[in-house]
């Protein structure tokens, strides 16, 4: 097989993930796009391992460690850990703030200005105590509707 096929597919999948990370608003969709990027890297690793382990038989210098496949397994395990921690963080943010939209989490923005579509004006230009109080109110509403 030509090496270009898997490598080009991997590059295109990675760029799809980049688009998703930059363009999505929901934090869980951003995590999905990160998974796409990790999978593109995995495909790269597997393709190069298949190429190099065959080239080793033809006298090509190669360490014979099957590094690509071992690293792919490690990447899959790390991605599983990442998605667990990421979802725990997103759920904690949702419980505290009542939203999982990363556009609205602007507490540490320096200019304090923000998107006009936040509706409640929760954190735009408000003081820290005020923002916390309104966020708590939102969380109460979210929990009351449960």
């Amino acid at each position: 097989m030509h090496l270009v096929y898997p490598v080009v597919l991997s590059a295109l999948l990675f760029c799809t993930g980049v688009y998703g990370v930059l363009a999505r608003r929901n934090a869980i969709l951003v995590l999905m796009s990160v998974e796409l990027m990790l999978n593109a890297v995995n495909l790269n690793l597997v393709a190069f391992d298949a190429w190099l382990s065959r080239a080793a038989r033809a006298g090509f210098p190669h360490d014979g460690l099957h590094s690509g496949q071992a690293l792919t397994l490690f990447t899959i395990a790390i991605a599983a850990a990442e998605i667990g921690i990421g979802l725990a963080i997103v759920l904690a943010v949702y419980r505290n703030r009542g939203t999982a939209d990363i556009d609205r989490l602007r507490d540490t923005a320096e200019d304090g200005g923000g998107s006009a579509d936040t509706g409640a004006g929760r954190d735009d230009g408000a003081g820290t105590d005020d923002a916390t109080a309104t966020a708590t109110g939102t969380g109460e509403k979210a929990e009351a509707s449960a």
């Binding site: 590059a11 295109l12 688009y19 930059l22 363009a23 999505r24 556009d103």
Partner: peptide
Amino acid sequence: DADSGNRGVALGVAVAAAVAL
């Protein structure tokens, strides 16, 4: 509101990265 406002910028970055890669 699944997509944020910087969709065009994201598309540009992704297409540029895809072409280069």
